[in-house]
Design a protein around this nucleic acid. Sequence first.
DNA 1: TTGACAATAATTGTTAACAATCGTGAACTG
DNA 2: CAGTTCACGATTGTTAACAATTATTGTCAA
Lengths: 207, 207
Amino acid sequence: MEQRLAPNTKLSEARLCETFGVGRMRIRRALLLLSSQGIIELQSNRGAYVACPDKSEANDVFAARMLIEPPLVRQLAQNPGDVNLALLTNHIALEDAARKKKERTEIIRLSGEFHTKLAQASGNKFIFRMMRELVTRTSLIVGLFGSSENASCPDDEHGNILKAIQSHDPELAEQLLISHLNHIQSGLDMEARQQPQDDLAAILGSD
Amino acid sequence: MEQRLAPNTKLSEARLCETFGVGRMRIRRALLLLSSQGIIELQSNRGAYVACPDKSEANDVFAARMLIEPPLVRQLAQNPGDVNLALLTNHIALEDAARKKKERTEIIRLSGEFHTKLAQASGNKFIFRMMRELVTRTSLIVGLFGSSENASCPDDEHGNILKAIQSHDPELAEQLLISHLNHIQSGLDMEARQQPQDDLAAILGSD
DNA sequence: TTGACAATAATTGTTAACAATCGTGAACTG
DNA sequence: CAGTTCACGATTGTTAACAATTATTGTCAA
């Protein structure tokens, strides 16, 4: 999710055990769940590897988001609810703070989380889960096909979407979100994919 | 999915082991995956129970389907593709055959599968997975809140939807599907839920 | 130098025993 | 007789050793 592990990175059980200080059972349970969400790939007798989505899968993810998110935001703008507005406003503040401090991984994390919070605001548990999966995969894809550093959500589009929701403008909110998704997608270079490297040390280093 | 296990049925590991003739590890892996899909509930130190969705979760599932399926079918009707039409036509034939033979569990299974095949026809792997989960949960819900036996998809609505797709009529297809979902939902009695019983013997009997 | 082959090392998959937790029922007390 | 407590049985969670598979390295021959 924070793009600290490159796609195709091998995740050895023993390594993960000592990294997180837990038994093999916990690790295997976690790997199974991650693979069921398509975040890693579990190859029989060969181990776990960070998923490496191809062009087709990337398009699937964006198509699914285009299908779900616009009507979601439209609906939210029609009837936001005070609690949701407070939560989202607070989130935007966090994003701004992280952007000011130039904390890269935090910015990436929060950028994704904004979209999951939109889904959470719908109050629909299923849609919330779906969106969480979609956002995670989007992070993977941006990490793979992201051409430059502006890969994370551009500028303050999140803030503008929230403003549209606050002013009960479903049309505008929907339109802004569509543009936002398009910006993310058009910032990708679908042909030249990033070189898959093996650096699990990234996690070890900061732990 | 076939409604042979009532909600809240306890799924003991030992029982499942001897039923399927596999080790405890396999069972636990399967239970973990099922719980991640919301089909069963894993209570810590207490075991696995068939999920028992409440009114709110049931509404979530239908709301999610209402969000996703209509635009999906509309899109499919605009550009079906010969392979998809063949697959769907073949599926309708299977449904008819099962209905003629009055094979209840088969009818239930195929009724759900029709919707997942609609999603499969979109060619989007994500949407396919989502729909499969939604359909499974719908089966659970119909089993819980279904008032009479006509709970399974009424008459030949599936066939009509397919016809609309075949004749490239997106509006009609979308409208028929919306009606179809409404029929399913309105056939439920959201208040008086079925009595949760414990009959894992159902599986043992037919195995 | 390159290719195939074999042996070894490393890693994953499985099994079985052990520990911990929870529900139940009997015994006891007020 | 009601309520509480304790102990037992059953079930789940964990650990560790073992088996099976795969990857790697070294050797030999062309």
